[in-house]
Design a protein around this nucleic acid. Structure first.
Length: 885
RNA sequence: GGGCGCAUAGCUCAGCUGGGAGAGCACUUGCCUUACAAGCAAGGGGUCAUAGGUUCAAGUCCUAUUGCGCCCACCA
């Protein structure tokens, strides 16, 4: 047993040491063991693009709290860590770095060399991230660390691709996709962020071929796409245009003939009711084009410059073209008018460039069939969202799902396992590189240049990390995982993909619960972002306040699904709490020299306050466990905090001091026993939230050979339920509070010892006499006399009523009776008000007959209690009033 | 256009299945009391957004309204 805690909590002294100790002792390791139930969480793999931010700290702390808690509960807890290659995001970063360092573009460098640099990047930043995860205290099984592009995960990706292709669920198609002209790749629908922006409506005349003086007027926000127009559509019911259907117009500038067609698509109320149809550059127009078999004319290049179909505008950027084209249209009399408008514009989620809908050959996943089982599991409860409302969002999205474009024109990622025969054009999708074309036997095969959407591999994470497609023991034992913890911002990107992938490949949900948390916002409530520069670095905070304080700050006062605000205040208060616990532990350690007595021996000698604190921690254990079961982690942390500070420190330690400093050795032994016992339970309850400080204190306590991380979670113990006796100590506490109150109001220095007279009968008298020494110590009282006769009440005293107990404090100086009257009158008024309120309730027929008996009885008891108190206060008032005339 | 969330003390937020309003910080007063000034003790401060409804009883459930925020959607 050691007792060398420093005076102030200093996390730097032990956090790193303790983490090493855990790791060295394999505390985070989880291996298949059928004697225990598994509890599995796979870590949402952080992107290797940079370093951890506060969002990660929140996300991971939640997971670590759950993991540590379940581990203590006896589960075989596996928290599997890893990182994500983050295809597009990393590629952009690496390209930037190459540009800065070497002044080269990635094309100049070449694919192979570029990938080499990307792997170097991964080594550097991946390593940095794992170090950060360690600093947070996270108890993940490092021996199982994975990367979305490691051999196993890559194998899983190929396997899934091939399987889906063979089932006809992956297809290659020439469709309209979202194109980022800056990243020069396609994007899936959810990778496009829409924002309302102000723009202009351009009304343009398209003259009729057979009647050049007549024209049809269309409205568009993107005139430059007119080079891709292949029709003008009007609604079949639109009377204005009936006579024009089937006739042809001249596409101005482009000098091409296009037909006016009838289609349900145009809205007669909007614009002119006539719409230019550009199937290669607008998703709606694409559909109309399909219906009418229209030609699809592409008028832009991949970098969003105009192509040869734009004639003299070829090579010009789309916006430059727009400007000049409008000018030309105006000059030539085609422009009718320009209106201001706001419309939704889509931008790339990585680089914020306005996306261009483009017609392109891409790979897609057919979603309808895959979505069905994913919908089912959410409906039948096999998959549950915490909080529930996210289940609705999940369902709504799945029920309206569209095919998923999975090919990306990038280099960093899983290359698509499709090969094209240069002789016959056959497409071969294969697990390994084929040697010959399966159709014409040609050996001239070329692999698809594209890579897969990064979320394709993330979607397989819960089983690819456990060894799939091999049928590993791990997979059998740990899958399905238990909880997925993630932010609401990636439900669509990630959660849904994992669910349908898991159901399709594994035949079971990838996890039973989805715990959804919010974002970490800055002190002003703004989203933390790089562009605002308002991000807070978790490592800096850990350096300043310690990992435990950061973790606790993130865990308290939060509710699932809601955003958390980063507050320095809250951080300080968490750090102060750690310090409080630290010092309480120091106090305990200073007072427990020697061996502890046995439980049997202690049990026989418990005093009231021992029973009280034991009973209280027992209740707290029960409540906190219930909260944890319901994912109410913030509430669990709060209750633990309150108990430690307001009950153990503020009351129990203070009460026990008089015993520890007293003469009775047996009494001391019991106090020591209880102090340690309760402290140990507190440390256990707090450990998931503050693992470092609790483990450090634990190591100094007697009889702690097993590390706290391996200890079992405390359980409710019927034998420790002294709740019926709690009122004994609560009465003492009330008396002490009342004395302190009087003292403060009388402005008596706390150092001044006072004499106290208490009038009490029956069991209260008994309780108080047992608690005399605490009253003396905690309220700084010199002498207490407990009386039963009114005659013994000192005349010159201040008084207060607690239940049916009256206390009187005699002061050396004369009591200011006028002030005393005022004080008592306030007390009386308050009691009268209470009685009135209770009477109103009790006189309500409905209340008496319909409210539960226990509630009614409670009110009746109150009525009696208040009445008694009121009588006493009134009587006292009369005496004083008489006295001062 | 559809959906969701929030509105509680000066600030930031808790408040689970309805039964006398809470915490942290800030504020006032007094204390360096032998674990802790990163502390101790005592206090002030709230018609729980508004209006209805259900109920014996509503911060809590229902409806509507207002304000703020978010998500989804093919508004040419």
């Amino acid at each position: 047993m050691e007792n060398n805690l420093t005076k102030t909590y200093n996390p730097k002294e032990f956090e790193e040491r303790i983490y090493h100790k855990w790791e060295e002792n394999g505390c985070f390791r989880a291996v298949v063991d059928y004697s225990k139930k598994p509890f599995t969480i796979v870590m949402p793999p952080p992107n290797i693009t940079g370093q951890l931010h506060m969002g990660h700290a929140l996300d991971q702390t939640l997971q670590d709290v759950l993991t540590r808690w379940k581990r203590m509960q006896g589960f075989n807890a596996l928290w599997l860590p890893g990182s994500d290659h983050a295809s597009i995001a990393t590629e952009v970063k690496v390209a930037e770095k190459i540009k800065n360092d070497e002044g080269k573009t990635k094309e100049e460098l070449g694919r192979e060399e570029f990938l080499k640099r990307a792997w170097e990047w991964k080594e550097t930043y991946g390593g940095r991230i794992t170090e950060q995860i360690r600093k947070l205290g996270n108890s993940c099984d490092w021996e199982r660390e994975r990367f979305t592009m490691d051999e196993g995960c890559s194998k899983a990706v190929t396997e899934v691709f091939v399987r889906l292709y063979e089932k006809g669920l992956i297809y290659r198609g020439n469709r309209l996709i979202n194109w980022c002209p800056s990243c020069e790749t396609s994007l899936s629908d959810i990778e496009v962020e829409h924002e309302d922006k102000s723009g202009k409506y351009y009304y343009i005349k398209y003259p009729l071929i057979d009647a050049p003086d007549e024209f049809i007027c269309i409205a568009t926000t993107r005139p430059e796409t007119m080079f891709g127009d292949t029709a003008v559509a009007v609604h079949p019911d639109d009377k204005r245009y009936q006579h024009l259907i089937g006739r042809k117009v001249l596409l101005p500038i482009a000098d091409r003939e296009i037909e006016i067609i009838a289609d349900e698509y145009p809205d007669m109320e909007k614009g002119t009711g006539a719409v230019k149809i550009t199937p290669a550059h607008d998703p709606n127009d694409f559909i109309v084009g399909e219906r009418h078999n229209l030609e699809k004319v592409i008028c832009m290049n991949e970098n969003a410059t105009m192509n040869k179909n734009a004639g003299k505008y070829e090579g010009m950027d789309r916006y430059a073209c727009r400007k000049l084209l409008v000018k030309e249209l105006e000059e030539k009399g085609y422009l009718v008018k320009i209106e201001e408008t706001t419309h939704s514009v889509g931008a790339c989620y990585r680089c914020d460039t306005v996306i261009e809908p483009m017609l392109s050959d891409q790979w897609f996943v057919k979603m309808e069939e895959l979505a069905k089982p994913a919908i089912e599991v959410a409906k039948d409860g096999r998959l549950q969202h915490v909080p529930e409302r996210f289940g609705k969002i999940y369902l709504h999205w799945l029920e309206n799902i569209k095919d998923w474009c999975i090919s990306r024109q990038l280099w960093w990622g899983h290359r698509i396992p499709a090969y094209y025969c240069e002789d016959c054009g056959e497409i071969i999708v294969s697990r390994s590189t084929p040697e010959r074309c399966t159709k014409c036997a040609s050996s001239k095969l070329k692999q698809d240049e594209d890579v897969l959407d990064t979320w394709f591999s993330s979607g397989l994470w819960p089983f690819s990390t456990l060894g799939w497609p091999e049928e590993t023991e791990d997979l059998k034992y740990f899958y399905p995982t238990d909880v997925l913890v993630t932010g609401y911002d990636i439900i669509f990107f990630w959660v849904i993909r994992m669910v349908f992938s898991g159901l399709e490949q594994m035949g079971d949900v990838p996890f039973k619960y989805v715990y959804v948390h919010g974002l970490v916002r800055d002190e002003e409530g703004r989203k933390m972002s790089k562009s605002l520069g308002n991000g807070v670095d978790p490592l800096e905070i850990i350096g300043q306040y310690g990992a435990d304080a950061l973790r606790f700050m993130l865990m308290t006062g939060i509710t699932p699904g809601n955003d958390v605000r980063f507050k320095t205040d809250k951080l300080e208060s968490s750090r102060n709490f750690a310090n409080k616990l630290w010092n309480a532990s120091r106090f305990v350690l200073m007072n427990i020299q020697g061996d502890l007595i046995s439980e049997e021996k202690a049990e026989k000698m418990y005093l009231d306050e021992d029973k009280w604190i034991l009973s209280r921690i027992n209740s707290v254990i029960q409540e906190v466990t219930t909260n944890m079961d319901k994912f109410e982690l913030g509430m669990a942390a709060q209750k633990t905090y309150d108990f430690i500070w307001s009950e153990y420190c503020d009351w129990y330690i203070e009460m026990v001091k008089s015993r520890l400093y007293g003469e009775d050795e047996a009494d001391k032994d019991v106090a020591r026993y209880v102090l340690i016992k309760v402290l140990k339970d507190m440390l256990k309850l707090l450990h998931p939230f503050m693992p470092f400080i609790t483990e450090e204190i634990w190591s100094h306590l007697p009889e702690t050979d097993v590390m706290l991380i391996k200890e079992s979670w405390p359980e409710y113990n019927q034998a420790m339920d002294y709740s019926r006796e709690e009122e004994k100590i609560e009465l003492i506490m009330d008396v002490i509070r009342a004395i302190r109150n009087i003292r403060a109001e009388a402005e008596t220095p706390p150092s001044k010892k006072l004499n106290l007279v208490i009038m009490a009968q029956g069991k209260e008298r008994d309780h108080i006499s047992k608690g005399e020494r605490y009253i003396k110590a905690l309220a700084n009282i010199l002498e207490i006399s407990i009386v039963q006769d009114k005659k013994e009440i000192p005349e010159d005293a201040m008084s207060s009523v607690i239940r049916n107990v009256e206390i009187f404090i005699t002061l050396d100086e004369l009591v200011d009776f006028n002030a005393e009257v005022e004080r008592l009158e306030k007390e009386r008024d308050k009691l009268q008000k209470e009685i009135e309120r209770v009477d109103k309730k009790l006189s309500n027929e409905g209340f008496i007959s319909k409210a539960p008996q226990s509630v009614v009885d409670e009110e009746k008891d109150k009525r009696i209690k208040y009445q008694e108190m009121l009588e006493k206060v009134t009587e006292r008032l009369e005496i004083i009033k008489r006295k001062i005339g």
